[in-house]
Design a protein around this nucleic acid. Structure first.
Lengths: 216, 216
DNA sequence: ATTTGTTTTAAACAAATGATTAATAATGAT
DNA sequence: ATCATTATTAATCATTTGTTTAAAACAAAT
């Protein structure tokens, strides 16, 4: 007789166990590839309880999605809006906080990017208020950059290059980690974290290099 | 009576129509979210023909996967191996060629990254020769960077930072395009392409800023 | 102890989905 | 024209998958 598999998440209420399992699997594999039975098994609960507590797979996904987008945007929005600091100091804060957040939620960038790709979410319509939030953040950022350019604080480059590079340098290692690091092992896990911490100092320097006005 | 939908891909042999449709959908939505009936409809063919020509959904996916990984690595590998040019000139070539390739295959980076994520492909085992190729490329790249450091050509930073930044700056805009660009419209399509072309010049400069030795 | 409301379970259902079949149409060689 | 091969189609099958149901277990109150 096969011993019943231990739930991966324990010591939580059933409802929370389900949500945690769903978050893990949805984040890792997306909506379509995650089966309700996978979630039930991961949570160590009976399949029917998923519908009992959350009505449907879609509802559960939306819940996870909302929390994840909130997490993804939270740090950024907080730091960007009405920030009186000079641009390069804003960057330092954003980078540091964001990397901390990503180290705790390494799967987050892929989840969000997956969402934006068409067809991988049940309700990927761009009118969703969540997507509006992303656009709002983008616009605040653009605004800040343009303001800094007017003041002569930073060089004139298309602001989208700056956003792309900042976000790319922040987020890309977490998406492409299997390419960057040799698979397997705690060694590479520790090394990866070490690198990400280094980047807290390095990314602001690199960005500064991109935006500093030539004639000092 | 509803007019029968025109196939999105025409003037090709049935086999090629299926492959093209599969490539489009798998690349866009991944393995699990793409249904065989979607592929059949997109290709404008009878569902049974998919199995007639390709045996199974999995086989078809593997075919697309192989071609896509080949595409993803081809340019890189070609330029990296045994390249006698100084490092910063290598970069110029790689960046230019790679952006051209990405403009023609904008969905490619997401597809490959999706692949590396666990669970989104039917055979995502890291022992697959295809994955070995990615690792091989990474290693060649590392080797080149370390060599350039020995020669004093470039600053001493952890080589993975350089790879992450180069790849990130190349690839990230194509993954995060929905965040960067306002959705919809030919205007933003043209603007996006324009930006990517600008990056051919800019990325090498940015990289140079990251690796140039201080006491030049 | 009984009742009442809540949680959990095993079983089943209906729809979706990947694959197959058997018959028909098209193509090409003789 | 006839035959053999290949390509295509509609129908069907078997499994997977999201959801529901009805009964059982549990907990708290009376």
């Amino acid at each position: 007789m096969a011993k019943k598999k231990e739930p991966a998440v324990k010591d939580l209420s059933t409802e929370e166990k389900i949500k945690a399992a769903a978050k893990k699997l949805f984040t890792q594999k997306g909506f379509a590839a995650t089966k309700t039975r996978d979630i039930a098994e991961e949570a160590g609960i009976n399949l029917a309880l998923l519908n009992y507590y959350f009505r449907s797979k879609e509802k559960l996904f939306e819940l996870v999605m909302k929390e994840n987008i909130q997490l993804f945007l939270g740090v950024m929005i907080e730091k960007i809006n009405n920030n009186p600091l000079p641009f390069d100091e804003q960057i330092v804060f954003i980078v540091s906080n964001y990397i901390d957040m990503l180290l705790e939620n390494p799967g987050l960038p892929f989840f969000v990017l997956n969402l934006l790709q068409s067809g991988n979410a049940p309700d990927g319509n761009p009118d969703d208020p969540l997507f509006k939030n992303i656009e709002k953040m983008r616009n605040s950022f653009l605004h800040n950059i343009k303001a800094a350019m007017e003041k002569g604080e930073i060089k004139h480059v298309h602001p989208l290059h700056i956003i792309a590079n900042l976000m790319g340098m922040l987020v890309f290692p977490f998406i492409a980690r299997p390419i960057l690091m040799a698979r397997s092992g705690n060694i590479s896990q520790a090394e990866f974290e070490q690198l990400m911490i280094e980047r807290k100092k390095l990314i602001p320097e690199w960005i500064k290099g991109m935006i500093k006005v030539s004639g000092g």
